[in-house]
Design a binder for these strands. Structure first.
Length: 499
RNA sequence: GUCCCCGUCGUCUAGUGGUUAGGACACCGCCCUUUCACGGCGGCAACACGGGUUCGAUCCCCGUCGGGGAUGCCA
């Protein structure tokens, strides 16, 4: 019904660092918008800063996007009809449009060096004045003056002539009308002395040439927008729609930085965060499904509900607790097969596996065993990071031991005696040559408790710590089944002796 | 300094010119459980402040304060 053509949006990172959460969020919202509107998501690399751009950053950004599952329709490796998608390969295009602006006298050559500008700024401030940006020193050089400078071999940058009167405004997709008085806009450089365009210029030329309809970017770009609109006007081009999304802050509401913890997307991967959870959490930062709608969602569900109208306008603090919660919810939603795929590399990289000698009831291989282990874990499996600690005892005697739990449940004469008695009883009652099911262990524990005149719990709690090193675990009878009778008895005896 | 934006529980947020201001995380308590976790139930906790406009403002306007951003030949 709508007459609007399908939107074309882009994420345009500069390869000068890793993909950080702010960039990821920007990429995500562009992606969500494209996917929810049947539009096109474009990836463009803004590598016009010859000093800071690196191959490593470029690769890292692509890795980060891939990890999150943000696939682009046009861009590096994807191709497209509007390439190339690296700005460093589009220099001819910028030159062409600069020439046009120059021919129309909408830009001018500036021979000021960084030192010149510094000196003049210092002079102004020393005199008690306020330096309000470039002073248009070169705005009205005569042809002779320009010739002299060029003959002297002075490099020049190009600046856009900006108006002094009126205002420049736009209707923001997120924050309604935004307006800047033209007097606060300065004649900024659009092509640097090295011949490369500045961000301001390359961005406008590319957005137009690539048919970008909606520019969704961080709020830190707001002050660039009026200047860029002036460039569009100088070039005689229509202005796309702009939407400036609020910043993401650290938990202390200061600028998010490394000192707050992980800030690069890839760090979260090593922290055991699932990409789907990261995506989910990032989406919740600034956007809301509304009302009492559930927050734990898949990418598809988010796409279905996404709307720019529901994107808020206030900065959000990054909350690691909430991220972890979303993450554990995503893990809980995984199928048994998916959990197995997730856990398998974690145990194999530690060299853990099923020893055939253990004769575990109903298990004939590491995968089957791990599957059973994860089964007993159930929803206790909520973190990739704590998983090794949670299940290590199933695979090795060199497992994690919670000293507090040990002191509380094993380190007493009564506990040691109970453990020793239980070990004896198990050895006497069970055929150690065959795998034993959980029920067999339970029966021995209950009869032993009765025989000794103690509560079953008096045997269960010390046993749990003796076997798992922890005060919390899956049902203890299942644990015994999966640890196997020989190892169970050995650990009970070891605990009784060590207490 | 100047310009711009933002301001609902500690955090993410929903919301309306008249609501017991809703949900989620975290926290606390209870239940379940041989334990822990999960789960269930309950609790604590917010409209930054001051003026207007209005019969009535969390919501509209102005100011103050607080926070953030920009102020580059970085993006």
């Amino acid at each position: 019904m709508s007459q609007n053509p399908a939107p074309r949006v882009r994420f345009a990172p500069s390869p000068t660092g890793f993909l950080h959460v702010g960039g990821a969020r920007t990429a995500l919202f562009n992606w969500l918008y494209a996917r929810s509107q049947g539009g096109t998501f474009i990836l463009r690399i803004e590598d016009t800063d010859q000093q800071r751009s690196t191959e490593e950053s470029y690769a890292a950004i692509l890795r980060g996007l891939n990890w999150l599952g943000l696939d682009w329709d046009e861009g590096p490796h994807a191709g497209g009809d509007f390439g190339p998608y690296l700005q460093s390969e589009r220099l001819d295009l910028y030159r062409e449009h600069l020439d046009r602006l120059a021919a129309e006298d909408k830009v001018y050559k500036c021979f000021c060096t960084a030192e010149d500008l510094e000196a003049r700024e210092k002079a102004v401030t020393d005199a008690g004045g306020v330096w309000e940006g470039y002073d248009r020193h070169c705005a009205h050089l005569s042809p002779e003056e320009i010739a002299v400078a060029e003959q002297a071999g002075k490099p020049c940058a190009w600046r856009l002539r900006t108006p002094d009167e009126g205002s420049t405004f736009w209707y923001d997709l997120i924050v309604d009308k935004r307006e800047f008085q033209n007097t606060v806009l300065v004649d900024r450089v659009i092509v640097k002395a090295d011949g490369f365009p500045t961000y301001q210029f390359a961005c406008v030329v590319d957005d137009h040439l690539m048919g970008i309809t909606h520019v969704l970017r961080g709020d830190d770009h707001v002050s660039n927008t009026p200047f860029q609109i002036l460039i569009y006007q100088a070039l005689g081009w229509p202005v796309p729609k702009f939407g400036h999304m609020p910043m993401i802050l650290g938990p202390d509401r200061k600028r998010l930085s490394k000192r707050h913890g992980a800030t690069s997307v890839e760090e979260f991967q090593t922290l055991g965060i699932l990409p789907a959870a990261m995506l989910n959490y990032l989406a919740l930062l600034g956007w809301s499904p509304g009302g009492n709608a559930k927050e734990v969602m898949s990418a598809q569900e988010i796409i279905k509900k996404f709307s720019l109208k529901k994107v808020g306008s206030s900065p959000a603090a990054f909350d690691y607790d909430k991220l972890n919660h979303i993450n554990s919810e995503h893990i809980k939603n995984l199928s048994a097969v998916e959990r197995l795929q997730l856990a398998l590399p974690i145990i194999t990289e530690r060299g853990w596996g099923l020893d055939p000698d253990w004769m575990i009831h109903g298990c004939d291989g590491t995968e089957a065993y791990l599957g059973r282990v994860l089964g007993t874990l159930g929803n206790r499996f909520s973190s990739l990071i704590t998983l090794p600690e949670q299940i290590g005892f199933f695979f090795t005697d060199e497992h994690f031991v919670d000293q507090e739990a040990w002191a509380g449940h094993v380190a007493s004469d009564a506990a040691r005696e109970n453990l020793a008695a239980l070990a004896d009883a198990l050895e006497a009652a069970l055929d150690l040559a065959v795998a034993q099911p959980a029920g067999a262990f339970e029966e021995v524990i209950r009869t032993t408790a009765e025989a000794r005149g103690v509560q079953a719990g008096d045997l269960i709690h010390p046993s749990r710590v003796a076997l798992t090193g922890q005060s919390r675990s899956a049902g203890i009878f299942e644990v015994m089944e999966l640890v196997g009778a020989p190892r169970t008895i050995r650990r009970l005896r070891a605990a009784a002796a060590a207490g």
